[in-house]
Write a protein that binds this DNA or RNA. Structure first.
Lengths: 249, 249
DNA sequence: TAAATTCCCGCACAAAAACGCAGGAATTCG
DNA sequence: CGAATTCCTGCGTTTTTGTGCGGGAATTTA
């Protein structure tokens, strides 16, 4: 990996998360901490980031202060993202829905990963696009401004043409009896198509959405291969899902 | 292998992958690293690539990751945008390419305008999405990271299905004899399809790009209905185009 | 205050770049 | 046609750059 490339990645991370730890960077990019520190120093000298003990901050961050709730939720989503990323290997074809958890996953993808991501979610696509080694396929159709995702029969037809290795679904509600449910009819149609077109279906969900139900049904638990939350795999909340045959991470 | 040939290959690789390692180049082309380095140096001096230790990066790489500056020559582009918007009326179907001029137009669209915009350009789509009354149709396919636009046969097929009232093309180069030209083969294919699918074709171009030529031909002047620049319509630079039958604004 | 990180400094090693040189190919010109 | 010139390329050597490592100083955290 080229030095400039690495620095670009760092800068990208900083601008996204508003902060970055040199320790996590050095495991992500797989270089020594010294190298990261030197990079951060250079970027700081150019005024691109603000270097602090243990990492760096985005320049635009000096005034904005997230609520504790927000930060907490983001940490949870990062945990989920890390677990999801562990399932991805080089060369995979991956379908993803939209949603903040998916975005967080996109932001955390290791830079050396080579894979093809297929999605109709505009924010997700934006993240994938910044990644150096990822091929991005955009599902086109009418854009739903609410969900910032392409919806409609054309989009569904395109998804049907794909056979993906794995499909990551951002989940609005999941319940042992009702399965996965959501509240936007068009998005549900898309998710159904994505499930059909994938060898493996993985749901990403923060714990607070577990055991909740929304009006429109996406699929039953039997169609789901794995459920990823920020909880440890042996958490009691997850037991019913394991019993129902869903793998948990 | 000829020198020019080699450099063309290198340039192609860089534009394709956004980066290139001199080591991999020298095994690919089977010449010494010195030769590669000299080639890269020449290309860097011509501004075609950005040379870094260990290889080279595409110019768009820097744009993607280090974009700190705003839109290039924004005032001029706003003038162009205003003129273009004057052509749009409620209910129109409008095809647009990518490019900063198009983005600027998207930003200047009056909020009460009702129209349907069709594009494969991610930055343009992002702007359209923010407008309250605009319907957005996204052309899907593989995303070219250079141009941030979807390219490929699927995209072209989708464009062919459309019959738009007007098509706005961001123009890289226009010349009285050579017509409209560009430097990215895939983008050119798209633009050709867009021209075919539109009742009216409008080129947006800042004055400094007038009378310049790029390697790949998009279309002749006869296929263009209107040319919009920031210059007043009676500017002498535009006279040859008016004589060639192109309307000017 | 003590322990644990993190930072800073110098050093060593490897990779890449720069430089000069020489053989060979292409071009120019008498 | 043939000689002179220029350009291109590869090779060895030197210089620069990039990276990792160890130890001690500085800073944070418990």
């Amino acid at each position: 990996m080229l030095k400039k490339e690495r620095q670009a990645f760092i800068l990208h991370q900083v601008n996204l998360h508003n902060k970055v730890l040199s320790s996590s960077l050095c495991t992500d990019i797989n270089v020594s901490e010294d190298t990261i520190r030197r990079d951060l120093q250079e970027l700081a000298e150019e005024g691109k980031v603000i270097k602090v003990h243990g990492g760096a901050l985005s320049h635009s961050f000096n005034q904005v202060y997230f609520s504790t709730n927000g930060v907490y939720s983001q940490n949870q989503k990062q945990i989920i993202a890390k677990k999801a990323i562990a399932l991805i290997t080089n060369g995979m074809f991956i379908l993803t829905s939209g949603g903040t958890t998916i975005i967080e996953m996109a932001r955390c993808l290791p830079p050396q990963l080579r894979a093809t991501f297929i999605s109709g979610s505009i924010p997700a696509i934006l993240e994938y696009m910044h990644h150096p080694n990822i091929e991005v396929i955009l599902i086109g159709d009418r854009i739903s401004k609410n969900s910032k995702i392409t919806v409609g029969s054309e989009a569904i037809a395109k998804i049907r043409q794909v056979k993906a290795d794995v499909c990551f679904l951002g989940t609005n509600a999941i319940d042992v009896e009702q399965g996965v449910t959501d509240n936007d009819w068009e998005v549900v149609q898309l998710k159904k198509a994505m499930i059909e077109s994938s060898k493996m279906v993985v749901c990403l969900s923060i714990a607070e959405k577990i055991n909740s139900v929304q009006p429109i049904r996406v699929c039953g638990l039997n169609e789901i291969d794995m459920l990823i939350t920020e909880l440890p795999a042996d958490d009691s909340k997850l037991k019913p899902y394991i019993d129902a045959g869903v793998k948990v991470a």
